[in-house]
């Protein structure tokens, strides 16, 4: 514990940095994946195209992506933008598929009823399809959040500061406690993000809770 107690400032600073850098790809990934997933869901032709493309993006190992992006985009190897763009690509790769599946999970009858009541296409998407796709969207977003937090640590290899610093520095100096502190903090941030997303889901989609408790009651009765 001595190392941890003596370096609380460093741990806190890296944790805040880690949180700051993780939020960007998660939010950006969600925003970009939304139209992409919609296109994949809506048209048969683009479905295969988009899903194959994000599938291919997802197969690129992160370390390789960190190395390949800078010359491709003309940004510096050591810049934060490099890691943020790479992680956003992964977020989009996971999330676009989730969005397509989420939209497909909405009951066809409900959509038709909404159209019959006079919803326009745009209005129906935001007020009917999108909220009803919520639970599956949330599941995808939780995967994105947790894996982004964990992946960000690899960024230290190309010099972007995060909790990954505790891994490389601790390994070089042979301090097990330091590496362990990094692992524990990453897991805590991941669980924190996951918990916040679950709470956000409950707050934004109160009907899912009602449905679940009704199911439970039905099962008991």
């Amino acid at each position: 514990m001595t190392w941890v107690l003596n370096n609380l400032d460093l741990i806190l600073q890296l944790t805040l940095q880690h949180i700051r850098l993780s939020i960007v790809p998660i939010v950006l990934g969600f925003i970009i994946a939304l139209p992409l997933g919609w296109v994949a869901y809506r048209y048969r032709l683009t479905r295969g195209l988009v899903l194959t493309l994000v599938g291919l993006l997802y197969t690129i190992p992160s370390l390789a992506l960190f190395v390949i992006l800078p010359p491709l985009l003309g940004i510096g190897f050591l810049s934060e933008a490099n890691v943020l763009i790479a992680l956003t690509i992964y977020a989009v790769a996971i999330m676009a598929r989730s969005v397509a599946e989420a939209l497909a999970s909405v009951d066809q009858g409900v959509k038709q009823a909404a159209t019959a009541m006079g919803y326009s296409g745009w209005g129906r998407f935001w007020t009917v399809d999108f909220p009803l796709a919520g639970p599956v969207l949330l599941a995808g977003l939780r995967v994105v959040a947790v894996s982004t937090v964990s992946l960000l640590t690899v960024g230290i290899v190309v010099g972007v500061q995060s909790l990954g610093y505790l891994f490389t520095n601790g390994f070089q100096r042979g301090i097990v406690e330091q590496v362990l502190a990094g692992v524990v903090m990453v897991v805590i941030i991941a669980l924190l993000f996951d918990g916040l997303l679950v709470l956000l889901g409950r707050w934004l989609m109160p009907w899912t809770r009602v449905a679940k408790s009704a199911q439970r009651k039905a099962a008991v009765a």
Binding site: S150, T153, V154, L163, G164, T168, V179, A190, L191
Partner: peptide, 11 residues
Amino acid sequence: RALPTFGLLYL
């Protein structure tokens, strides 16, 4: 999924 593989490897 939450475990950072990179840190785990060093550990």
